[in-house]
Simulated scan of single mutants.
Amino acid sequence: MSEWKIKRTWDNVEVKQTEAGFLVALDDRPIITPAKNPLLLPSNALANRVANEWKEQDNEVIPAKMPFTRLSNSALDKVSVQFKEVADILSEFGETDLFYYRASSPAALIKKQTTAWDPFLNWVKNSMNVSVNVSSGVMFIEQDDGEMDKLKAPIYNMTPFQLAGFHEIVTISGSLIGAYAVVNNAFMADQVWSASRVDEEWQIEQWGSDEEAMAASEKKYNDFKIGCEFFQISL
């Protein structure tokens, strides 16, 4: 989403409930999105999150410090008008999910992957009746079309707001199955995050880390947690 900047010219921030949803008003003027759509939100919880972000701004609005506002803008301006395109992108993760691809060596890494990832594959089999193929190496693993249809179907039943949050969870973690697990409250967000980091943490154990990589990881973690919360409070 392109950056947008405005100066703070308001004193009061208020959540207003309407028949269609919730609005956030600045000095009684409802906020609009960069594409000039009303910032109409699906829940009071999300509206309060957005309102708090606007209350915390000083002289100049800084979008990078307003993740719930930015995701709401994205849901209204982009996802709602390109829903199928966004859903199709996320559904492709079902074909290449992180949890399918295991190391061929060393044994210690294989054990870490198995311990971290197999519970998610067991969960998706038991809860969604989806069985997947797993292999070692990086070569593409063919999955059964019928199983993939079952795995992908829930994406297309989400709302634009849910899909905006789900997009963050899937693309940051690299796992469609992990994303389903967290939004269905089967696993905690930190469990999914830790599972998605097995390979990276193994590399750190072997070679160490640097400040730049640690900062990038921390930002991804924060964005991942925000995506999880955004999805839940968009219900």
Results as ranks from 00 to 15, higher is better:
S91F: 12
F161G: 00
T115M: 07
F166E: 04
W117R: 04
L98F: 02
D118N: 14
I169P: 10
A116V: 07
K78P: 00
L176A: 08
L71I: 03
K78H: 14
S136G: 14
I141R: 00
L76F: 03
S175G: 05
P154D: 07
V79S: 01
E92R: 07
A108N: 12
S175V: 11
Q143E: 05
E147W: 06
N157W: 02
T69Q: 07
G94S: 07
L109N: 06
S135A: 15
V130E: 02
I172A: 05
T115E: 15
A116S: 14
T96K: 14
K125W: 08
T171M: 09
L76V: 10
R70P: 02
Y156L: 08
K125F: 05
D88C: 11
D145E: 14
F140I: 06
T96C: 09
T171S: 13
L176I: 07
N126P: 10
G165P: 01
F166Y: 00
Y100S: 09
A164H: 01
K152A: 12
S105K: 10
Q82D: 11
M128H: 06
E95D: 14
Q143K: 03
E95F: 11
K78Y: 15
M139G: 04
K125L: 13
I141S: 04
P160I: 03
S80Y: 01
T114R: 04
D118P: 00
K125P: 05
Y156C: 08
A153R: 14
V170Y: 11
N133T: 12
D145V: 12
I172Q: 04
K111H: 08
F93Q: 02
T171K: 09
V79W: 02
S74P: 00
L109S: 03
T96N: 14
K125D: 14
N157E: 00
D77G: 12
Y101T: 04
G137K: 09
F99L: 15
S131G: 13
E85F: 04
M139Q: 13
S72D: 05
M148G: 01
K150T: 07
D145I: 08
R102E: 09
